[in-house]
Design a binder for these strands. Structure first.
Lengths: 400, 400
DNA sequence: GGATTAAGTCAATACGTTTGACTTAATAAG
DNA sequence: CTTATTAAGTCAAACGTATTGACTTAATCC
């Protein structure tokens, strides 16, 4: 009678799925390539001119694309390139980190319109959520002031926080945020903001940002190694962010590796936390600027940490190249650009791997965003991607 | 004028894509769940009864499904379950290994109908291809004799061989098959057989087999660690086999790990090749039975190898759990079941990882196929999957 | 100034899913 | 035993979306 619940099957699709996909494909093409004419779009997407015209008309009516000046290029009727309308959609991104939370508002093309941050006390999530809701409310007010259409066009709230998610019986050691994990955060924030919420770990958020706005734009296979308080890998596999069965894919910080006989998680050696420890800095204070200053003054302890961390990072790059076979690995992090550049340089030469091939169009390892706001940006990019990027799941019918 | 070639975009879709997907979804549901009525299918796929009826009618006309006896269960009109027709499609699978090649013929549900194997000389691919083409031709003749409709319904030729693929300047050491890599194998076999050919590495093929017929059936996130001559991981991510940007994802055998100071590829320690070396067996001879006998006689050298290999395997399992966050890891290999069982047992207890959670529906690590024919089976499953499994790429329009 | 080329539109058509009413066939309740 | 209820499955019309081929427009080339 109700044993049909046990039937495992994928979802079917219908014409609306078709249309939804095609609209997303067009928006994606405009995002990656900039303005394109309808004829260009038809060729690039394998759709007919007529279909593209219909879809573009819809998108223009919805305020997501707009025509630019007519372009004459050679023989034939001049073309009308269309481009994304930045004000076509907005999203709020929220980063929850150990000691700080950041909220950000972006538009459809990724312009950052509002930023705000607040300290998080160690009182745990109950008080933390109050702070966060206040922060988000402020950001929304500011956004609304700048862009009156924003509230109507808010596509959601993206949340990024350190993983791993859903551990049972996790020790609440300083590396994890177990009390936050146990708290019904998504439900609370969804109720408190009235927005659709999505969750990623911080490395995934960073990869999302790199894909929408950074060096991974247009790449379908990329791994973003994110060095934050911990270290993790955000995975772009087959054109989509991959999160694994429980949202924990890419948690490379927890990978054990041999360290002179003992097995240590990578996170304990290559992460900002390990740097803070090495420097004797209190992470709860303004660690970013403390490190920034030491880097600028070229403190020898920075070099010590870099050479140790680079050794481990070299191994991590080798590992993700070997296991994921990406087009490129992107190193990003919430530390100062100088520090990240030095770390990148110290990681070279990379270990030999399958990725070592002639005529690579992109480098094996490249620097990505180095900005404390990168994760919040990626968090904000998530709802935009969910609403506007081509994905398999967007084609399928919803249950019910 | 022709700069539109530079426009990067995903492909659009149309009603035929919709229908193709829905048909695949129905076949997939029948494969995973066994016979289902049209009403069951409608509920499971979120399609309407009417749509399912139309699709099932098409599938029945195409000879892919057939009705079973009417089933009375409770109130209401009795239902008619439909099931896959084994003779609805056939495929040939080909494994090319270092010293041997195996060909296999399967039907739609994975029944093995024909097997054949041949030794491969070390003369390289030119003579090898002649042997292979002969082998395939024999298998097709046998298949045709058993199932007269087979030739009309052959969906393709799947090839599995050791990776990695597309290395430039690869040393032709005993672990790789560089001369085979350089040879235009796919083109030659496509031309020689007139079939559509597909290529996977052996670990991927094993994962394909486990997904279609083994312990990964119905799982959308699984990693299959395959111990063959080398060692590799086949990745089922998000319901599809993942091969990476160049077909080399999961080549864990090439992952370097610290071994008392030195960095060694995993492959040099946990692989049949390392066992052959440890035992002083010539892999070109009948190594399978030589090992089989030593295992049955409980030769102490087997235990030595197992304990060493298990240590490394434990680490490999930890690594793929950490990086891929799968529902389960499946250990399979072309060695005797006894050996694989002992290796599995020696790998326990597993290292702590994110996968350690209460109420797991499937074990963290489980034994998969232990059969020299598993890879060939997976190779044969690939064309079936390409033709009949739901995948994103199957929805999209073809270029042109 | 006419030929050619390319962008884009128009109107009719084809395809596949959906909708709602209907039929069939079983069990449950009175 | 009769009637109500439930569920599977069908029918035919409607709907949404992409496609087709002819047509228009507007530029460059010769």
């Amino acid at each position: 009678m109700d044993d049909f619940r046990l039937v495992r099957a994928k979802s079917g699709t219908n014409q609306e799925g078709t249309s939804a996909h095609n609209q997303r494909v067009i928006l994606d093409a405009l995002r990656i390539n900039g303005a394109l004419s309808r004829a260009d779009l038809a060729r690039a997407t394998n759709l007919t001119k007529q279909t593209v015209s219909n879809l573009v008309e819809n998108l223009e009516r919805d305020g997501l694309v707009r025509p630019q000046d007519v372009v004459r290029k050679g023989r034939g009727q001049p073309s009308t390139p269309y481009c994304l309308v930045p004000e076509g959609a907005f999203a709020i991104g929220l980063q929850i980190d150990r000691h700080v939370t950041r909220a950000i508002a972006v538009d459809l093309v990724g312009n950052v319109l509002v930023r705000a941050e607040a300290k998080l006390s160690t009182d745990g999530p109950a008080t933390g959520v109050r702070i966060i809701l206040g922060l988000i409310e402020g950001v929304r007010r500011d956004l609304q002031r700048q862009r009156p259409q924003a509230e109507r066009r808010l596509s959601g709230l993206g949340i990024a926080m350190p993983g791993p998610f859903g551990l049972d019986g996790a020790d609440d050691d300083e590396w994890m945020m177990a009390s936050w994990q146990a708290f019904p955060l998504l439900e609370t924030l969804a109720a408190g903001t009235g927005l659709e919420v999505g969750l990623q770990n911080d490395a995934a958020a960073c990869a999302t940002a790199e894909r929408m706005l950074g060096n991974a734009r247009g790449l379908d296979h990329a791994v973003c190694i994110y060095i934050g308080y911990g270290i993790g890998a955000g995975l772009i596999l087959g054109g989509e962010l991959y999160s694994g069965a429980h949202g924990n894919a890419g948690e490379i910080g927890m990978a054990l590796f041999s360290d002179g006989g003992r097995q240590t998680p990578l996170e304990h050696r290559a992460s900002m936390a390990s740097l803070y420890q090495h420097l004797g800095i209190d992470p709860a204070a303004d660690a970013y600027h403390a490190v920034f200053d030491l880097v600028e003054r070229d403190d020898p302890r920075i070099g010590e940490w870099i050479s140790r961390a680079a050794t481990d990072l070299r191994w991590a790059v080798h590992l993700v190249e070997t296991l994921f076979d990406p087009q490129s690995v992107i190193l990003s992090g919430g530390a100062s650009e100088t520090l990240m550049r030095r770390l990148l340089a110290a990681t070279e030469p990379l270990l030999p791997s399958l990725a070592e091939r002639k005529g690579r169009p992109v480098p094996r390892l490249q620097l990505g965003m180095t900005d404390p706001w990168a994760v919040a940006l990626g968090a904000a990019a998530e709802p935009i991607g969910r609403a506007f990027e081509p994905r398999f799941s967007a084609i399928l019918k919803e249950r019910g």
